[in-house]
Computed example of a mutant assay.
Amino acid sequence: MRTAALLGAILLILFALFQDNPDQVASDVPMFDIRKVEVVGDLTYADRAALQRSYNQLLGRGLFNEPMAALKYIGEQPAWVESAKIRRVWPHTLRIEVHEHKPVAFWNNGKVITADGKIIAPATRPNLPLTRLSGPADTEAAVLDQFTLISQLLSTTSLRVAGLELEDRGAWNISFANGVSVKLGRDAVLERLQRFVAVYKSDLSGRIDRIASVDARYPHGVAVKWKAEQ
């Protein structure tokens, strides 16, 4: 009975102190130190071990000492990490839930465009069959939007976009996984692409290995350059 009463009194004192100065109590009382760090989440590209090492540096510190912003900052430094959700699990566990960026295309040299349109520059580019998008600085949103429209237009065909380029002067060029490249120019890009698709289906699909390039900038047709003409 006396033991229970004494324990209750100690807890009341700790509670009162914690209300007045939680950071000081958390650092002074051993029961509040960080003894375990958990990095959770489905990670394909982010380095879980590297994140674990970064957070392990906090072991032994007060569980409530580190500001939440600082804890999030540690987890969100790797390029592949979209967000890090921090949870303090009493009495001594720090749990970090990590969410990754989802890659949708490569951008220029070595960069990646994510599903939310952000450009990231990972230390190593993943070996994925993603479309290569390229263009001048600050045009990634426009190029990604154009790629989305083109993909929708081609959804009923066997053509898969391997690369889409926006030149400095505003002209568009597209290359397909089958090796065919098409110049689309600056204006009426989707209309010109539709014209190429029609010609491709009716006349070119069986002669892919002979095509060097296609120019779809003409108003009523396309010009095909055959490999023998090079």
Rank of each mutant, 00 (worst) to 15 (best):
R48P: 02
D33N: 12
N178T: 04
A4E: 00
R210T: 13
K227L: 13
P67M: 00
D215I: 12
L184D: 14
D187Y: 15
G8T: 03
S205C: 10
A16Q: 01
T156G: 01
Y45V: 08
L130G: 09
V214Y: 09
V40T: 15
L149P: 10
L14P: 04
T93H: 14
Q77E: 15
F32R: 02
K111E: 13
A79H: 03
A216F: 11
L14V: 10
V222I: 07
E100D: 02
L166E: 13
L43N: 07
S202N: 03
V89S: 13
P91D: 09
L130A: 12
T93V: 15
Q146S: 09
D145P: 03
T157S: 11
S213F: 02
N173W: 05
Q77R: 15
L133N: 14
A121I: 07
G221I: 05
L204N: 00
Y55A: 06
F106Q: 00
A141Q: 07
L204W: 10
V98T: 13
H220K: 11
E191G: 15
R160S: 07
S54P: 06
A70W: 03
V29A: 11
P103G: 04
R87W: 12
A115C: 09
A142S: 10
A142P: 10
A188I: 07
A228E: 13
W90T: 13
I120K: 01
K72C: 00
A121N: 09
I119L: 08
V98N: 07
I208L: 10
A69C: 03
L51W: 08
I211D: 01
E140A: 04
I208N: 11
Q19M: 09
K201Q: 06
S155Y: 00
G117N: 02
L12R: 06
D138N: 09
